[in-house]
């Protein structure tokens, strides 16, 4: 019995993983009809380990500097700040998505691409899946801090 549960777990896991690799564009069309309703939280903040609002406070420069480093190594090969590259330009990402969505997208791209309308829409435009870059919660928070700095810069200009 235990074994059965285990293999069932494995099966569903692998189905999930398979779904994660599936061809994006077809899925979109079927998704429209059969998609389960998103909760209000999910609509705003996506799917992933961040399940409540992040307390932001004043900007932490040190944290932002760490975030910039991570961005250079793990993200910049696909995202430029001000122009389209493999993925969307990122300087103004926080105008598009909430801090929580940002973190969830980075931590858990596959599920968001499969289920979240914003990520799906992006995929249809960029035809390439946002990839899991093996960042942890701390890294994601530091990345967020970096983008808060960029966001402040944009606001100051306006």
């Amino acid at each position: 019995m235990k074994k059965f549960i285990l293999s069932a777990a494995f099966m569903s896991l692998s189905i999930l993983m398979l779904a994660g690799c599936g061809d994006s564009s077809n899925k979109k069309s079927t998704a429209k009809t059969s998609e389960p309703e998103l909760s209000a939280w999910e609509k705003e903040n996506g799917f992933g380990p961040v399940k409540e609002k992040v307390v932001l406070g004043a900007i932490d420069k040190k944290m932002a500097a760490k975030g910039e480093k991570i961005f250079e190594s793990k993200c910049a090969s696909c995202h430029k700040l001000d122009e389209r590259y493999v993925g969307p330009a990122q300087r103004n990402v926080l105008e598009r998505v909430t801090p929580e969505f940002f973190m969830n997208m980075v931590l858990n791209p596959d599920e968001n691409i499969d289920k979240h309308p914003h990520a799906k829409q992006m995929l249809a435009v960029y035809l390439q899946r946002m990839t899991n870059q093996n960042v942890n919660l701390q890294d994601a928070r530091e990345l967020l801090e970096y983008f808060r700095v960029l966001d402040e810069g944009l606001k100051a200009k306006k």
Partner: peptide
């Protein structure tokens, strides 16, 4: 290879 995803 800058990827950090399994099987890529």
């Amino acid at each position: 290879n800058l990827e950090q995803d399994w099987d890529i």
